[in-house]
Design a protein around this nucleic acid. Structure first.
Length: 271
DNA sequence: TTCCAGGCGTATC
DNA sequence: GATACGCATGGA
């Protein structure tokens, strides 16, 4: 048993997991630090406070056993062996450093629609402002709005978000998902390139956002988003593409690298 | 003031 | 298919 019930919630023993590294590495935008190492946030409309009470031991505050097993265990991807992944990745020198730098990153299993909407907002934007826009969105609707609810809006009625040119993209995404014209469920089982093409029928969804949705919202570990930071990593270390040891799990490797170079931009310098 | 931010749509060649 | 440029907003 890797968890037990306590009066305060569920206590979980888990390797290869760091709360801040996982929730604050640019894959999710609805979590905030409590300042003491704990984080509070949401998956859909399920609220959670999570703390590390000892090395490798985590408290899911005021969570029932059913909620832990039915929601959070899956959200944090506790059934995937990231130790094994990191072992494979570490055949590569740069990846070895990245995995060691933030060894507790896990790829969250987020909601496809929320992830789609969030990464549309993320384009040509910075993380604090992305969080601000999503925060205003959730405040307005008392939680992250469904595609159906948002499909009633227009770019003009979304002006309160102050999301700039992205408002018309949010409108298009909401309408295409709500109508069923685009189905994330259908895209999930397509070959990677076909799934990307399907998502890219939405205005404001290009290759990078599509990969983010596939990786962070549909857990397609073979999808790896190439943003400005990963472009720099590829140019500096992998001119011929991601190394062979990442095959099938390029997305996870990408996330270790992304976090590593964002925190250590000097590693990109030639020397 | 200017530059930049987990890009993309459009025009142009 | 490749490349250049504009885009809303706000923080550094």
């Amino acid at each position: 048993m890797d968890y037990c019930k306590t009066n305060d919630g569920i206590l979980v023993s888990q390797n290869d997991f760091d709360i801040a590294q996982t929730l604050d590495c640019g894959q999710a935008f609805r979590w905030s630090s409590c300042g003491d190492g704990s984080f509070e946030g949401y998956f859909l409309n399920n609220r959670l406070k999570i703390s590390e009470t000892g090395k490798g031991t985590f408290l899911f505050h005021n969570v029932s056993e059913d909620e832990y097993l039915g929601i959070w265990k899956n959200y944090f991807d506790f059934d995937t062996d990231y130790g094994e992944l990191k072992k494979r990745f570490s055949e590569d020198e740069t990846l070895a450093k990245a995995c060691e730098f933030a060894s507790g990153i896990r790829i969250l299993r987020q909601d496809p629609w929320e992830t789609l909407c969030s990464f549309i907002i993320s384009q040509n934007n910075n993380i604090p402002r992305i969080k601000g826009i999503i925060g205003r969105l959730c405040e307005r609707y008392g939680g992250f709005p469904s595609a159906l609810r948002l499909s009633e809006e227009t770019a003009d009625s979304l002006a309160y978000l102050r999301s700039g040119f992205r408002a018309k993209y949010i409108e298009d995404a909401a309408k295409k998902i709500a109508s069923g014209e685009i189905s994330t469920g259908a895209a999930a089982v397509l070959p990677l390139e076909d799934a990307k093409k399907e998502l890219m029928k939405i205005k404001g969804v290009g290759p990078k956002v599509a990969d983010c949705v596939l990786l962070f919202g549909m857990h397609r570990m073979d999808a790896y988003p190439v943003d400005v930071w990963i472009k720099r990593v590829l140019a500096r270390f992998y001119p011929d593409g991601m190394p062979q040891c990442t095959k099938g799990f390029e997305g996870a490797a990408q996330q270790y690298l992304f976090h590593y170079v964002r925190c250590n931009p000097g590693e990109l310098d030639d020397n």
